[in-house]
Amino acid sequence: MQLFLFQVLNGLGIGMIYFLLSVGLTLIFGLMRFVNFAHGAFYLVAAYLAFAIVGLTGSMVLALVIAPLAVAILAVATERLLLRHTYRMPHEAQILITFAIALLIQEVVIMQFGPLGQNVPVPQALSGVVFLGPFVYPAYRLAVVAVAAVVAVVLWIVVEKTKLGAVLRAGSESAEMVALLGINVDRVFMATFALGGALAGLAGVLAAPLRGVEPFMSAEALGIAFVVVVVGGLGTLSGALVGGLLIGLVQSIMSTLWPQGAHLMIYAAMALVILARPTGLLGRT
């Protein structure tokens, strides 16, 4: 019984990490109706930037500031130069072009850092474990869960309670109408893309000490991010949170009940949700 209780807690922790992985993806889709397959590549770039910055300076805090910012700039550059030309195209075209960007970025990373994995050490202050009653939990994971929780709250406030959030939400419903009100929709989309990129970057930096860095890590991140947003409902922040937690719980609990099927059950859960609610748990029809 104690083990199951621990798996529930552990699953919630995994879920928060998955939320962080997917929130940038769902934000961009929700507000721009744009399917960004380069999301995993942005995560990859940030993880390697963290590797380089921590290697040079030993400072994870510096990596947390610089890498998401750099990825936001990269996201804006791709949006301005390439992606904005695809907004009126079907989703297939967007998928193809962002997939190509992802492959390009991956190859550049291999050319620069080689095909093998590298280590990003856990910051000294967070390298131990925390005792939660009878359970042991890594201090660093707990810190990542806390950051994810803060991100969730801040994003909810920005999107739901501020004027900027109102503009973003209106832009997602009818870009033409918002433009008629004198708001520069192009700039709003660019800002959204930068924010989505920065969030992917934040996830990449925080994941680096958990997983290490290797050039093929983007595929795993993208896979999980898509499962989470499909389960939660494409384009909704609360959906990403609920989806992340559900997937984390399924994976963790199944690790005890049916270990060999734990990963499979993530996709089985997704299939069940799609059958019961094609728009996802909290998706809009």
């Binding site: 083990l3 690790s255 734990a262 990963h263």
Partner: peptide, 20 residues
């Protein structure tokens, strides 16, 4: 023993079971 699949990257659940 905890089996994992070829595509697994998250092992904390298995490790929790092992710790128990």
């Amino acid at each position: 023993n905890s089996y994992h699949s070829l595509s697994d990257r998250e092992y904390s659940g298995y490790i929790a079971t092992a710790l128990a």
